[in-house]
Nucleic acid binder design. Structure first.
Lengths: 157, 157
DNA sequence: TATTGTTATACTCTATAACTATA
DNA sequence: TATAGTTATAGAGTATAACAATA
């Protein structure tokens, strides 16, 4: 039985692209909502905070605000706000950049790194579970197809 | 060249599910952001407002608040707020339900229907363009795979 | 002048929970 | 008691624009 959700507005007469889009949205919104509520309940944090820390985890020396802003796909003011929060909790720190006194590097503290590992492990488990209905081949296929979507979108944007 | 975005945090060592998830998010967030800004600029409206009207367009007799809430995947209070806005602009109306004086049917006015058609046409064009990099076969494949994701997620939720 | 990051602000979206009215 | 919808509230998330310091 079809669930009643965002996709309910799709007509059979709609172009196949639109029907696909509504399904994509329904999938990501549902999963994302659950991630948010689990992050809040189990770790008292939010998705942007988690995401900022995830970006930093890959880069031990830290990232500039402008780089974080690009990667998180949000404007600079917001990165400042999230960084302020995390810094006040001792999870990240701002480090001066040699040769440019306007800029900082934001990096995880050891406390931040420790706390992030716990969250990341849980998060990974939730995602593996959420996508657990797919075989490895299907995952590869989806990954490849969405890669194509992304590349095309960057070209026309 | 790989774009710098949400996916930048993906490691090769991450499980394939997580890498897929980050790609799904990057795709939908990018497209969704553009939709929001185009709806704002060209039609002075928002995605939830558009979505509510889209749900109603399929059902000329209207939908109850509770039904809208389910379909839009948001809680009742929010539907009230959006409906209030649209009603004050004469785009939707609340109609009494015979036999249940607690409930309403919300439906598009003719003005609402007229304005919606314009927006929907533009919206459809944006989506067709956004997903224009895919062949029809690829669209079918994605649609089918995401259907599987959705069904599995409903089972475990 | 341009760039980095911050501050201030405002608005949309959302969930939660208490509430009113009807069933 | 349960249900339909509303109200009130608080917080997340975001964009915009003006600003200070530095390049």
């Amino acid at each position: 039985m079809a669930p009643i959700d965002l996709e309910a507005r799709a007509h059979a007469e709609h172009p196949e692209q639109l029907r696909l889009w509504l399904r994509m949205l329904a999938c990501t919104q549902t999963i994302e909502r659950d991630l948010r509520s689990r992050l809040r309940e189990q770790f008292e944090t939010t998705l942007p905070r988690f995401d900022l820390m995830a970006q930093l985890e890959r880069v031990p020396e830290g990232l500039r605000m402008s780089e974080l802003s690009k990667r998180m796909m949000v404007t600079g003011g917001n990165v400042t706000g999230i960084t302020d929060q995390l810094e006040s909790e001792g999870l990240v720190e701002r480090v001066n950049v040699e040769g440019d006194r306007r800029a900082y590097l934001v990096r995880l503290t050891s406390k931040g790194r420790r706390e992030f590992r716990g969250m990341a492990q849980a998060h990974e488990g939730w995602i593996v579970e959420a996508l657990g209905g797919l075989t490895s081949n299907e995952i590869q296929a989806l990954h490849q197809l969405l890669g194509k979507v992304k590349r095309h979108y960057l070209e026309i944007a």
